[in-house]
Amino acid sequence: MSSVRPDMSPECRRILAELPESLVALEMPGHARICVSCAARWQAACRLAGWLRQRPPIPDALLGPAGFEAVVDRLVAEAERAPLGRTLATVLVQTPAPTTESVPATELCRRLLATPVPAPAQLWPRVRHEVNRQVAGQLWPMRRLWLAGVAGAAALVFGLLVLDRQGTQVQVAIVFEDMTVAPDIAIMPVSVLRSNLR
């Protein structure tokens, strides 16, 4: 695969990397005096630097509030023509223009509710999806809680069973303890005879 990197000599790359410092110093690097590409690059950079140092003047149309209002109007007009704008136009209730009299907010709400506007059909699937998503989000923690409770109860029962089983199955190590003197018990003839000689 061929590299997209321009074919430049290491010296040219170094001049290009040091270009900002050389522009500040307003001094052409020594390599640019002998390299045609670097000399052209240097001259172009000098012209651009001059333009960048100059701040361009602000147009008169933007100096006043009318210019900004024109920008806002243009953005609103574009939004109205977009799908969101058309949807909002059909959903939002046309409110009467405000009069000089102050209308209480409650009165405005009453007027809005008095004239219900049916929602568009394409809106309800979105609403239903959103409602289901919210409900699912609430149910899943509850389901997790329920599952955790069942698992915890099962673990508790299992643990009790294991411990109880372990309690009945006591591990006993059987060891022999040697006696140096025979027990005095009448169990064998020789033990009976020996007992009379003690």
């Binding site: 006591v170 591990q171 059987i174 060891v175 064998m188």
Partner: peptide, 29 residues
Amino acid sequence: DREMAIARYEDSSLRVYLFQRNSVMVRIA
């Protein structure tokens, strides 16, 4: 854990074992 001891006596003529479990004394000779 618990160790259960079996007392043991042995010589050339006699061999006896004793242990106690569940309130019963067991002897083997």
